[in-house]
Structure formats: structure tokens, C-alpha cells
Computed example of a mutant assay.
Amino acid sequence: MYKKNEKLLTIIIPCFNAEKYFERCALSLEKVNSDNVLILFINDGSTDTTQELIKCWIKKHTNGYLINKENGGYSSAINTGLDNCNSEYVMFLGVDDELDSEGINNICIHLKKNKPDILAFSTKKIYDDSNKNMMKFEIDSITNFKNPGIYIYDIYTLYKKLGKDALILFVRDTSRCFKMDTIGKTRYFGKTGISADGCFSSIVACKSKSFEFMNDVCYFWHLHEDSLSGRKKTIEKIEEELCVWTEFFTWITTSSQTKNIPDPIIDYLFIYKELIDVLYREGRTEFATKHEIHLKKFMIKILNNHTISAKSRVKIKYPGIYKVYMNARGIIIG
């Protein structure tokens, strides 16, 4: 398709029935430097005009490529993109979102100069309210870095030093560029992508040794009624999400790269538990019990075999006491 490391950065855009948003997304890519950046569209079995729209765009742009695949869900679309990514870096763009092209061009300068394993940048959240015909804008607080700069640490030490500034490394898959050599064979779990992006991000963060944080706004994140993050979870999707967490914590508790585990990853144990509790309430007892057994094993392994903070140790060993303590401080847990 194209030569290895022909481009500095590949932007992977998963697309499924995206005709409603495609033009807005594509317009934001017009001024991205085509010498540095390749745009890789993954058409995940769309049944509308998405494929035709992509073909029209790539006819006019030498740095655009299309891969068609049968519908398999967000995770499989991202994995297809990663399997076909030959650049030095990769980032992900939702087809219903936009980029700031000048910001991306500036990021490419930093990637060439500093070569971090992960480069994080700022995101502007845009709340689309079609009912009120209005939009609300704000900088995503998790990408408003108090201590921008370059850091050469493992993820445990980085989180101890930076705290909130490092939280973006453990959540969704946008607002960052990832080095492909660091990603290696790491791929998304599951099918729908629910929680899989945070798991992927956390694993890559654990494998990383160098980080750069920039307050340049490069991503425009649209939140609307069609957003994946805004959709209500069905019981079937909760069950899939539990399987994603099982795969994630299996990796965490067995990898040689996670002897020291930062707090945000420990916090995911309690999201796992909350989902198990939902299934118990819904009468899915057998499935919930199986995952509760997994969860207890993961907690025991982490307590016995890994370095974690005193706060995380208390949370795992005495979750009830920790909940009472935090609630007394005005921080509602659960």
C-alpha cells in the first residue's frame, strides 16, 4: 500500500454510516501537511454513502487511503487501521469530530524533534444541541496541562510527579499521538470499543518511557446525540465490557512492564466491580459471579505482586472504609 515510515504520522478515521458528519471532518483535514501526514479511512461496512464520500476525497488528496471491511465494530476498525499503519506515529480521529490542521502541523514538528513515545495535546469540547440550535464550547479540563513539557519516566513515576496532568494517558484514544514502535502488537479488545480505548491507552502508557504534553488545541470533540460516548449501554454491551476488563487486567497482572501500577489503573477495578453489580441487579447472576471471581483474583495478585500507592492499597483492602472516608470529605464514591 505504502512504504514503511513513508509518513511521520497516520491519522486513522473509523467510519460507519458517517455521511451526516463526513464533510465537516474532511474539511478540517484540508490544510494538514501531506508531506508528513497520511489519512487512513477505515470503512466499517457502511450502508449509506460513506464509501463514495471517502473515494471522492481521496481522489483529490494524495495522502488519503481507504480500506473497506465488513462491519465488525469500532474495535475491529481501529485494529484494521493499526495493522495497516506504516508510519512512525499514529493518532485517532472520530469521523464526527474535527482537527485543527495548524495544530497538527505544529505537533509534527515536535514529533520529529523530540520523538516521545506519547505526545498529548489539548482538546476543545463542543456540545451540539440540535434541539436548541446552539453549541457550547470549552477546553477539556483533562487536556489543560499545568506542567506542559517533556518527561522521561515510567508511567508510575510520571503519575506520581504530574498527577492530573497524566490522566489523559489512561482514558479515551484521542488527544494523543502514539509511537507505533511502542504500540507494537497491542490492539483493542472487544467489538464495540466501549472501555477498549481506555484499556488500549493505559497499556500503551505502561509500555512508554517518554512523554510530551502540549497545550495547543488540536482536536475538536463534538458531543451530540449520535456520539458513542453518549449512548446508553445495553446489558449485552455491559457483558462485553466486562470481558474487555478481564482481558485488560489479565495483561496488567502478568506483564513485566506493570510491576508498578498507578492509581488510575487501580480505579478501573472499581468500574469493573460496578458493572458486575449492575448484572447482579439485572438477574445475570452466572455471568456476574464468573467476573466477580476474576476481579477478586486480580485484586489479590495486585496486592501481593505489584507496587501501588498507599491510597490504592487501602481502596482495595478496605473499599467500604475508603468510601465512607471520601464521602465524609464531600467526595461521593459509588
Rank of each mutant, 00 (worst) to 15 (best):
M1C: 06
K3T: 15
K4D: 04
K4I: 02
E6R: 10
L9C: 08
I13V: 15
C15T: 09
N17A: 03
N17H: 05
A18C: 10
E19S: 12
E23G: 04
R24S: 09
S28G: 13
K31H: 15
N33H: 03
D35L: 11
N36A: 09
I39F: 04
D44M: 04
G45I: 15
G45Y: 12
D48G: 15
D48M: 07
T50D: 01
T50F: 00
I54M: 06
K55P: 03
K55Y: 14
C56E: 11
C56M: 05
W57E: 04
W57C: 00
I58Y: 08
T62D: 09
G64P: 03
G64C: 03
Y65E: 14
N68C: 11
K69Q: 07
N71D: 05
I78E: 06
N79L: 06
T80S: 09
D83Y: 12
E88H: 00
E88Y: 01
M91H: 02
G94F: 03
L99R: 05
D100H: 09
C108A: 10
N114H: 15
N114V: 08
N114L: 12
D117H: 01
L119T: 04
L119D: 01
F121T: 03
T123F: 01
I126H: 15
D129T: 05
M134W: 11
M135T: 09
F137D: 04
I139W: 02
D140T: 05
D140Q: 03
D140R: 00
I142K: 00
N144I: 01
N144P: 01
N144C: 10
I150F: 15
Y151M: 07
L162V: 12
L167M: 13
I168G: 00
R172W: 13
T186K: 02
Y188D: 01
D197E: 13
S201D: 08
S202Y: 06
I203S: 01
C206F: 03
K209W: 02
F213W: 05
F213Y: 14
M214T: 07
C218G: 13
H224E: 15
E225Q: 15
L228A: 10
R231M: 14
K233H: 12
I235W: 03
E236P: 04
E240W: 15
C243E: 13
V244M: 07
V244P: 13
T246R: 10
T246Q: 11
W251S: 02
D263I: 00
I266K: 04
L269M: 10
L269E: 08
K273L: 14
I276L: 07
R281N: 10
T285F: 09
E286F: 09
E292P: 07
E292S: 12
L295Y: 08
K296L: 10
I300G: 11
K301H: 13
N304H: 15
N305H: 08
T307L: 01
I308C: 07
I308E: 09
S309M: 05
S309A: 08
S309N: 02
A310Q: 02
R313N: 02
K323V: 15
M326G: 00
